[in-house]
Design a protein around this nucleic acid. Sequence first.
DNA 1: GTCGCATCCTGATCGC
DNA 2: TGCGATCAGGATGCGA
Length: 278
Amino acid sequence: MPELPEVETVRKTLTAQVQGKKIESVDVIYPNIVSGDVDQFKAQLQGQTIEKIDRIGKYLLLRLSHQLTIVSHLRMEGKYRLVSSQTPIQKHEHLSILFTDGTQLRYDDVRKFGRLQLVETGRERVETGIRYLGYEPNQAEFTSAYFYQALQKKKKNIKNTLLDQSIVSGLGNIYVDEVLWLSHIHPLTKAQDLTKAQVLSLHQAINEEIKLAIELNGTTIRSYHDSNGNEGQFQNFLHVYGKQGKPCERCQTTIEKIKVNGRGTSFCPNCQVVKNDG
DNA sequence: GTCGCATCCTGATCGC
DNA sequence: TGCGATCAGGATGCGA
């Protein structure tokens, strides 16, 4: 599933493939993939040039000429690939953008969870889910003091808090499980019960984990590939995600898997302890 | 304001 | 082998 490091990798590879290309036409095969009016979406994209691609959290922003931006969220299994216009449409390709040079950018999404939304450039922080995002890991504003104060206001568990994107953006199920293991924090610990030392440790783990994952082009568990079709390499450095039933690297206790707010959660029951004495 | 849960969706996996 | 049930999960909307 694409999280911040995977989306950043897609941004880089996609930029190299489509930057400067002019859109001739757009075909939307599965209309629900587009937020808003599909006909308007197609009409407005015609004749636009992709100037650059930005990323905010897990959102890709395709910056177009004439002050328009496609805000794209890959959700679970969304992926882009650039092909010749002669290539037959595949089963799970739901949108294609034909460029004037004869190439086509295809959006593929097995579960159809991803969404694309066209907005005026600058309005993405008003009209899309980006408006709810907190700071990103390694962003200057994401200080340990900010993080501690923000967590103090949260009564829900830390696992759910890190997944909701409003305090720190870009983490998904894999990286949340990993940073909690690195910080020795039990996923069910109430966010506001974390000590300053625990928050400091968690803050450091988030920054270091995301930085390393970006350097390794993300994590490929099942389906993630960048727009060149390459897999990430970070799955070789995971400690708990997908390791249920195997011994913890630190203490040899068997890694357990539980459900936390409906999400599969792997942790070590020995070295990740619930801390409630604040 | 905050939280938990259902919903979207389909391939993989499991049990019978 | 074939079938149905269950699981996986990010963002969003809604009710409590």
